[in-house]
Simulated assay, not measured.
Amino acid sequence: MNRVLDEALIYEILSVVEEIPEGQVATYGQIARLIGRKRNARLVGRVLSMAEFYGSYPCHRVVNHAGRLVPGWSEQKQLLEAEGVAMKNMDHVDIKRHQWSL
């Protein structure tokens, strides 16, 4: 996996995350498709789990394909709600309403 995960790829993923507008969310798969790696949603998740080592990025705006928040990261919901993102239930964003469309 380390051969796949080089700094150029990390910054490519983070640069896409940086573009997600306030009040919108993107999915791991959506980011993977945008960088030309449509089958690497888990790779995107792995990079985001260590994004703090590369700077400040709005990783709270990334959810899974169903809009589910990251388990165990209670601040994510608070950050999204502060941006006006509506929740479908306790741990899912209303993805139909807030998904980033390019």
Rank of each mutant, 00 (worst) to 15 (best):
N40E: 15
W73E: 12
L69E: 02
A41E: 11
L80F: 02
G29S: 15
L80Q: 01
A86N: 09
G55H: 08
L48W: 01
R46F: 12
N89Q: 06
D6T: 02
V93W: 00
R42S: 14
V85I: 08
A41R: 10
G55S: 08
G45S: 08
E12A: 05
V93A: 03
M90E: 08
T27C: 14
V85N: 00
G67R: 00
Q99K: 13
Y11V: 00
A8C: 08
R39N: 11
V47H: 03
N64W: 05
G23T: 03
T27I: 10
A32T: 05
V16F: 03
K88G: 04
Q24M: 12
A86R: 10
E83N: 07
M50P: 04
Y54N: 11
L43F: 04
V47K: 03
M1Y: 12
F53T: 09
Y28G: 01
S15M: 06
E22R: 15
P58R: 05
R39Q: 15
S15F: 09
Y57G: 07
V63L: 06
A82W: 05
E18N: 13
S74Q: 12
I35C: 11
S56C: 13
H92R: 13
V4M: 14
K96C: 05
A82Q: 09
I31C: 05
L48T: 02
D94G: 03
N64T: 07
L69A: 03
L5I: 12
Y54K: 08
P21V: 09
L80C: 00
R37G: 01
S74Y: 07
N40V: 11
R42N: 13
P21S: 13
R68V: 04
L5M: 10
N2V: 10
H98I: 00
W73G: 06
R42Q: 14
I20G: 01
W73L: 15
L34R: 14
P21M: 13
N2P: 04
Y54W: 14
Y57W: 11
V63D: 01
G23V: 07
K38E: 15
V17I: 10
M1F: 11
M1E: 14
R42P: 11
L48P: 01
Q76L: 09
K88P: 02
T27Y: 03
I95K: 02
H60T: 03
E18L: 15
R42D: 11
I95H: 00
E75S: 08
